[in-house]
């Protein structure tokens, strides 16, 4: 991509490192939404990725492409209609799709926590924020000294820039950005190994957004926190992610490390997405957009799910679903054209 700022090579210890332990491994995960009298809606199909200690993976795609479904399914938090029909989710070698609910409850929040999209309603309105953070600690760390819990809550709130006296306040007394940050503080409460962040910065202004990103980045460097970062914002992806999973209509479009995505993307959807992103080096250039809408889950095209909007689609794209093609050590794309040029 000429003219696009190349991503710096020097990313410190967070650089993809083969010696690091794999914490989360998603293998061929497929999720259907089942409703009576209708064929199942294939919301997510055959998605795989791995996450190592201290790594940050960006999950990118338009609204409705299955990002949130995928994220919720990792901890089996989907509503009862959403069912994992295939695939596995390994966390430190344990398959989260098969273990008992009781065992899973020990992993939820303690090891893998979630920052929900739109934290507006993600906090209980009738309990104080401090109380809700403390709840996570008392639930998962029964040995934590009782008299130090309040201190820990203050410390966590301080970490995300919320003054200690807000601890006793109710969510409605918080601004939107504060709630989002309180949510992040709560996610950090038990020192988890993985944080799943579903668009954690979309409701925030740029200053706070930068602070939060910096905070997450520091935490993974310091504590080896692994992060799944769901976002629309390719700028954020370029700034902090190690790997990127581009999803389209519930399937993997492209999966690669961030350099490859920005500099040699192979899937037409990734290429179009990048074109739709402002380029600072060419301020006069017009931004392009991808015409059309993502496919409806109840009316998926026969062939490639992107084919109806793809500028370079060939006849085969409309009839046959492309396979996931391995293009390198850490580069996967699902496109017939990739296969043709291989």
């Amino acid at each position: 991509m000429p003219g696009r700022p190349t991503v710096e090579k020097d990313r410190g210890e967070a650089q993809i490192n083969p010696t690091k332990r794999t914490v989360l491994e998603v293998q061929n995960l497929s999720i259907n939404y089942i409703s009576e009298g209708k064929p199942p809606a294939r919301a997510v199909e055959n998605v795989s990725f791995t996450l190592k200690e201290g790594e940050l993976i960006g999950l990118v795609g338009e609204s409705g492409c299955g990002k949130t479904t995928l994220m919720l399914s990792l901890l089996r938090l989907l509503p009862s209609a959403g069912q994992i029909v295939d695939g596995k989710v390994f966390f430190n070698g344990k398959d989260l799709t098969t273990i008992s609910e009781k065992e899973l409850n020990k992993i939820r929040w303690k090891e893998i926590s979630i920052v929900f999209q739109g934290a507006m309603n993600a906090l209980n309105p009738v309990r104080t924020v401090g109380d809700q953070i403390a709840e996570a600690i008392t639930k998962h760390m029964p040995d934590f000294p009782k008299d130090k819990i309040q201190g820990r809550v203050i410390e966590l709130l301080d970490l995300v820039g919320i003054a200690a006296d807000h601890k006793e306040h109710y969510p409605h007394q918080y601004s939107g950005g504060m709630r989002q940050r309180a949510m992040i503080a709560m996610a950090l409460a038990c020192n988890p190994q993985v944080i799943i962040a579903d668009e954690p910065t979309t409701a925030l202004d740029v200053m706070i957004q930068a602070q939060i990103l910096e905070l997450l980045d520091n935490l993974r460097k310091k504590l080896g926190l692994a992060i799944v970062f769901v976002t629309h914002d390719l700028g954020v992806v370029a700034e902090i992610c190690d790997k990127v999973l581009v999803m389209y209509g519930g399937v993997t479009a492209e999966y690669a490390d961030v350099d490859t995505i920005y500099n040699s993307a192979r899937h037409p959807y990734t290429q179009e997405l990048l074109k739709a992103f402002p380029d600072l080096t060419k301020p006069k250039k017009k931004l392009s957009s991808i015409p059309g809408y993502p496919p409806r889950l109840d009316a998926l095209p026969d062939g490639c799910r992107f084919a109806p909007r793809c500028p370079v689609a060939i006849a085969r794209c409309h009839t046959e679903q492309p396979m996931l093609h391995k293009l390198g050590d850490m580069h996967i794309a699902s496109c017939h054209l990739v296969e043709a040029s291989k």
Partner: peptide, 26 residues
Amino acid sequence: SEDYILTAKAKGLSTFQILKDHALKN
């Protein structure tokens, strides 16, 4: 069906705890 119940579930609370601590009062 509120979002904060999903949060409570993600926090690893059991169904009983969710009902008792997050749902009933509201």
